[in-house]
Amino acid sequence: MKLEIKTISEKETEYIEIGCHKIDDRVNEIVQFVKQRQGSIDAFKDEKMYKILIADILYVESVDDRTFIYLAEECYESRKRLYEFESVLPTRQFARISKAVIVNLMKISYIKPALNGRFLCRLKNGEQVIISRKYVPDIKEKLKR
């Protein structure tokens, strides 16, 4: 496999691009490695601890003083409070969308209006989460940057 590295300006977002004939185990391994480099978080499911890759998180929700991490198909619990996630997760990629939810902006398919001045965002796994009107200006600002 040919390896190419090029330097880009500070203004541009750093990226890794893979050119391959097909997505096989070898490519998936590289993807997993890159995701791991972006960080991971400890989470629990059935009293077992797991390392969750930050890039795989769809959203984090706080329900009755408990915090849950949602991936495409699984849900884990975390001992961290929601406000602690705000400092742990990459601020560019994640945004607070309501009092109880932080969402991964990379995992949103589209946004549509709901009743009462709120919005619904449809995630890539088909789930929908509510965006409170209060947080809309912050999200707009974040997406414009």
Binding site: I111, G117, F119, I139, K140, K142
Partner: peptide, 23 residues
Amino acid sequence: WLIDLKTAVVLTEDLKHFQEESR
């Protein structure tokens, strides 16, 4: 709701740009 729909369309477009840029 129609005003919010316009906002949602703009947000979705901005989101697509953001996702493309962030890759």
